[in-house]
């Protein structure tokens, strides 16, 4: 498989390796040391690092600036972009800005509703949706054209990704939605955190049956649970999340001080099982404010050392 961009992530996948990505959430302040510290914890254990874009609608340091910091440290950033906060002028402009620093991965998202964050009184934009943002980045890269039709001098060389949630409703639309994202231009997919492995495998089967896994690299998303409380919160309070009762009870039946360890066990076991699922091209490990555990998870799951490409 030939590559179209300088992206290391694309090269890893094209070479047939299982990719490993993780994420860094920028701080609610301007101190670059926060993002650099998180990055240092994971840099040797992942191929690329997502930088979230004002996740859960809480105002934070911008994804682009944090990506530049990672790039300057020699890491490979994945620029997350939500369509909630910027119109098509700002989105295209930021893509060019990222390309000016040779950031070559982008993840196109719609973003959580602003009512969850610290600016609930604000407006959302959604001039484009995530599908249309995928189309826009592909057009900028492949045709060298802005949405408005003008030529771009030095088009951005971006490997283009999207998110997929196999667990949201309606379930029957979930694979159609993946197909639509692939048609819109997605080259890699990072999924919502997977706890219901049976349902994920069912979704993957449908995706394979439609030939989608030959057209897009699916990275299975995983978030280790720190406690039974976190599991209950994710199950009951986070929209679109599917946490089976067994996962909650396994943590709840564990003494509190051992719960983090069991949370990591569950995550590693999931990776081991999903490695055998045809079409899973890698793993996206989102250890939320628990970046120090990424190395352990990657090593225990047999995904270390990372390949050179």
């Amino acid at each position: 498989m030939s590559t179209k961009t300088p992206s290391r992530l694309e090269k890893i996948l094209a070479a047939g390796h299982r990719a490993v990505t993780s994420e860094c959430g920028p701080p609610r302040g301007s101190d670059p040391a926060v993002i650099e510290k998180k990055a240092a914890l994971i840099r040797d254990h992942v191929d690329a690092v997502n930088v979230t874009d004002n996740q859960t609608s809480m105002t934070r340091m911008c994804s682009l600036a944090a990506c530049i910091r990672l790039k300057q440290m020699g890491l490979e950033p994945i620029l997350q972009m939500v369509t909630r906060d910027r119109n098509r002028i700002a989105l295209q402009s930021d893509i060019l800005g990222a390309a000016a620093f040779d950031i070559c991965n982008v993840l196109c998202l719609s973003g959580d509703h602003q009512s969850f964050g610290d600016c609930a009184q604000g407006q959302n934009v959604h001039d484009l949706d995530s599908m249309q943002l995928l189309q826009t980045v592909r057009r900028m890269r492949d045709d060298g054209k802005f949405l408005g039709g003008d030529d771009i001098a030095r088009p951005p060389q971006m490997f283009v990704g999207a998110a997929a949630n196999p667990f949201a409703d309606p379930f029957e639309i979930r694979v159609l939605r993946l197909a639509k994202k692939v048609s819109a231009g997605a080259e890699f997919i990072q999924t919502q955190c997977i706890y219901n492995l049976d349902k994920f495998e069912q979704w993957m089967t449908q995706a394979r049956d439609r030939g989608l896994t030959e057209r897009v690299s699916v990275l299975a998303g995983l978030t280790p649970m720190k406690s039974a409380g976190m599991a209950r919160y994710m199950k009951n309070r986070v929209p679109g999340m599917d946490v089976p009762d067994e996962v909650v009870s396994r943590l709840a039946d564990t003494p509190k001080e051992k719960q983090p360890e069991v949370g990591i066990d569950i995550c590693v076991e999931a990776i081991e099982r999903l490695k055998d699922v045809e079409g899973v091209a890698g793993f996206h490990i989102m250890a939320i404010e628990w970046e120090e555990k990424v190395a352990e998870i990657v090593e225990r799951a047999g995904l270390y050392p990372r390949p050179e490409v």
Partner: peptide, 14 residues
């Protein structure tokens, strides 16, 4: 709520 033109976001539940 997000005036999405191409399908539900990942937050659609029941």
């Amino acid at each position: 709520s997000k005036q999405l033109l191409n399908g539900p976001c990942g937050g659609s539940t029941h």
